[in-house]
Amino acid sequence: MVVRSPEDVWDVLRDVGAVHRRLLPGRVLDVSVDGNVRTLTMPDGHLVRELIVAVDDEARRLAYAVVEGARPPLRHHHASFQVLPDGDGRSRLLWITDLLPDSLAGLIEARTAHGIREMKEVLELPAGA
């Protein structure tokens, strides 16, 4: 649960070129977007390329796939975020990730859990912070 309106949370998520400023500052150093390809520059300098599959304003859903630069390397990675109302101006952020090989699921699950905590903290910062 995120103590922020679904509209506000979606505004941050749908801004695919501002992950480094609005969603994961510190975890992502910079972002560039060329068409449907988003390139994330990580703090250690390595690049992660993602294909933006869908930005659905009606469903408040963002789908993407890592196509290059995953560490450790993945054979397949597809994920989606969906912002759902959770009452009283709060939101539920649903993050689904599919990946191969299955042997890396535990590592990716731990990273995802850490990312969720980071995103929640940033999303709940007071305006202008």
Results as ranks from 00 to 15, higher is better:
Asp34Gly: 03
Gly115Tyr: 04
Glu109Thr: 15
Ala18Val: 00
Ala54Lys: 09
Val83Arg: 03
Glu121His: 06
Gly69Gln: 01
Val53Gln: 01
Gly87Ser: 10
Arg22Leu: 15
Met119Lys: 11
Val67Cys: 05
Ala79Asn: 12
Asp15Phe: 11
Met42Ser: 00
Asp8His: 11
Asn36Met: 06
Ala18Cys: 04
Phe81Pro: 00
Ala59Tyr: 01
Ala65Leu: 04
Gly87Asn: 08
Gly17Trp: 04
Val12Ser: 07
Val28Asn: 07
Arg22Thr: 15
Leu107Ile: 13
Asp98Gly: 07
Ala70Asn: 00
Leu23Arg: 06
Val31Arg: 03
Pro101Gln: 09
Pro6Cys: 04
Asp34Glu: 15
Arg22Trp: 08
Asn36Pro: 02
Ala105Tyr: 03
Tyr64Asn: 10
Leu99Ile: 11
Val19Cys: 08
Glu118Gln: 14
His76Leu: 14
Glu50Asp: 11
Ala65Asp: 07
Pro6Ile: 09
Arg90Pro: 02
Gln82Met: 13
His20Glu: 12
His114Tyr: 10
Glu124Leu: 05
Val48Ala: 02
Glu121Ile: 04
Val16Gln: 03
Leu62Ser: 06
Arg61Cys: 07
Gly69Asn: 04
Arg75Ile: 05
Ala129Ser: 13
Leu40Asn: 08
Thr112Val: 07
Leu107Ala: 10
Leu13Thr: 05
Glu121Ser: 05
Pro25Leu: 08
Arg27Cys: 05
His77Ala: 01
Val53His: 01
Val55Tyr: 04
Leu100Ser: 13
Leu123Glu: 06
His114Leu: 13
Val48Thr: 11
Asn36Val: 14
Asp86Thr: 12
His46Asp: 00
Pro72Tyr: 08
Gly26Trp: 07
Leu74Pro: 02
Arg92Asn: 06
Ala18Arg: 15
Gln82Trp: 01
Trp95Gly: 00
Ser91Gly: 13
Ala59Glu: 15
Ser5Trp: 06
Ala129Val: 11
Leu74Ala: 13
Leu23Pro: 03
Ala113Asn: 10
Gly69Trp: 04
